[in-house]
Amino acid sequence: MSVNKGVIGFACAYTPLPLIRAAGFESYRVLPNVDCPDQAGRLLHDNLCPHVKRVLDRAMSGMIPDLKGMVFMNSCDSMRRLYDAWKAVKTDMNIVLIDLPSVSTNASIGFFRDELERLSRTIEQWGGTAIDDASLAGSIGLYNRVASLFTALREKSRRSELKGDSAALQEAYNRASIASPEEAIAFLEAILDEVADTKKGEPGVPVYLFGNVLPEPEAFTLFESCGAHIVSDDLCTGSRLFTAIEPGGGDILLNMARGILGRPPCARTFSAERPGSLGGDVAAGAVKAGARGVIGYTAKFCDPYIARLPGVRESLRREGIPFLLLEGDCTLRSIGQHRTRIEAFVEMMR
């Protein structure tokens, strides 16, 4: 599989990276944690999610690599508006908006499969190689390897055996989201081989972290310096990007669609059979990870989370699991302002 066709950017954890790879492109996540002038407000309202505004700031400031194109997923109103604004700003760049169903039914899996096919055709037109089943299966295999290495890395971090703790894990997520799977596999294996730090002092209070966009490794250092030990995460910029897909037999795109829609959902995807289940899922995730409390971090103005957080709060209250909700703008500055609250929360659980 040759990867020399250039780089394709993306912004959402639902992006089908193996497909991009199978067309011979590298993928590059445009993360919102790069300092650049605040200009997005010229096109997008102040009450739009800071994740999309910071991604647009990067495009407007030219602080992105040379991209062959940009793939957007229609995950929420804000993402759709990012697509619109990007198109207005980067008039000569290839871009595509791929529809993303909110529920995983047979019909919507079939529809999403067709959207993946449309994406294949589109990126082929951007200069990619024709995607065949063999190259796609190979590509899925590579990303599955990345996913399983991350599972091992999370386990290592949970056991407090990872050098640099959860900040190092986040660093690895960030690196992998802008690297080829081969590179990711190489550095993840190296990190896994590293010998653990010998921990001194009082162990941190086990905490489960969920939410959307928190790519700053320093934020994790902050949690830990406040006495928390992140035992598991469920974040768009964390575990959600790299989840294994079963390529199976038959129609590989259909299997891929099923795999992507079937992964543990963020707030924008849900089960119509189990409405309101995010709360229960968060509580179950916390219990499974052996957490004593839950910290939620969400970007301000994120409608999918705003609407579901009361349900999460209620489920955790019912289970007797302490909950701290932090809201921010994806920057370290905004999370740093919460230090006192995080310390008090951790102290309360000791």
Partner: peptide, 16 residues
């Protein structure tokens, strides 16, 4: 799913 993410979320909450 149209017109807005917030509207769909509210329907989910009401169903619950």
């Amino acid at each position: 799913t149209n017109p807005c993410s917030g509207g769909l979320a509210v329907l989910e909450n009401l169903a619950h």
